[in-house]
Amino acid sequence: MNIVTTEKLTKKFGSFTAVDHISFQVARGEIFGFLGANGAGKTTAMRMLCGLSKPTSGTGSVAGFDIYRQTEDIKRNIGYMSQKFSLYEDLTVRENIRLYGGIYGIKEKEIKPRTDSLLDELGFLSEKNSLVKSLPLGWKQKLSFSVAVFHDPGIVFLDEPTGGVDPSTRRQFWELIYKAADRGITVFVTTHYMDEAEYCDRVSIMVDGRIDALDSPGRLREQYESKTMDGVFQHLARNATRQAD
C-alpha cells in the first residue's frame, strides 16, 4: 500500500523545468530518503507533495488524496518540519504543543495527557514551561519533530532536519524517526549527511529535476560499486548540468 504515488509529476517555472517527469512510490511505514544536490528540485517536488504548489503536469496522490484538488485534505493528514521554521521561539514548550494540537483539531482533553507523555518520552518534562528560544538547537529540532507527528499523520515530511546539529543529538533524532516509523508513520526526509541516507529504507537521488536512482542504500552501493552512499551520490550528482537554485 502506497502513501505517496506520483506519475510523471512536472513543475515548470517559465522555461525552466524544476521537476522533470518524476514517477515514484513510497510505501506506508517506510523511511524514504529524498536526496539531491542544491537546486536539483527537491524542495519544489516536496512542496507539490505537501499541497503548497500546483504541478504543471503529471499526477500524484499523498495519503490517498489528489495533489491537484484535495490539497486541504493533504495538509490535514501530513506532518511537516523544516530547518527554518519549526516552533514559536517566544512560546513555552507546552504552549507550542498546545497550539499545534489545536491547529490539527486534537480534542481538548486529549492534548494534555498526550503532551505529558510526549515530554516524558523526550525527557523534557522539566522544561515544559521554558521558552523555546532558551533550548539548545538539538532539543528544538527533537521537539519540533515530535510536534510534527503529534497528530499522528500518515506521513511526515522532514526538510534537512539535522543540519548543524551535534553528532549525538543527530543520532537521538534518528531514533525518534525510527520510533515514529514503528508507530506506522511514513517518513519522507531530505538530508546532506550521507551517513543518514543509510538509515533510510529506500533512497532516491535527484539530479537536474529527474530521479536518477531509487533503491535501498545497500543495492545502490552495489549498483554503483561504491563502499559508501557518499560515493553513490558523488557519482550521480557530478553529472548535473544545472547550476541555478
Binding site: 544536490a37 546532506h192 550521507m194
Partner: peptide
C-alpha cells in the same frame, strides 16, 4: 560549507 550539497562541498 553549511547547507551545501556533498558535491559542492567536495
Amino acid at each position: 560549507t553549511t547547507g551545501v550539497d556533498p558535491v559542492s562541498r567536495k
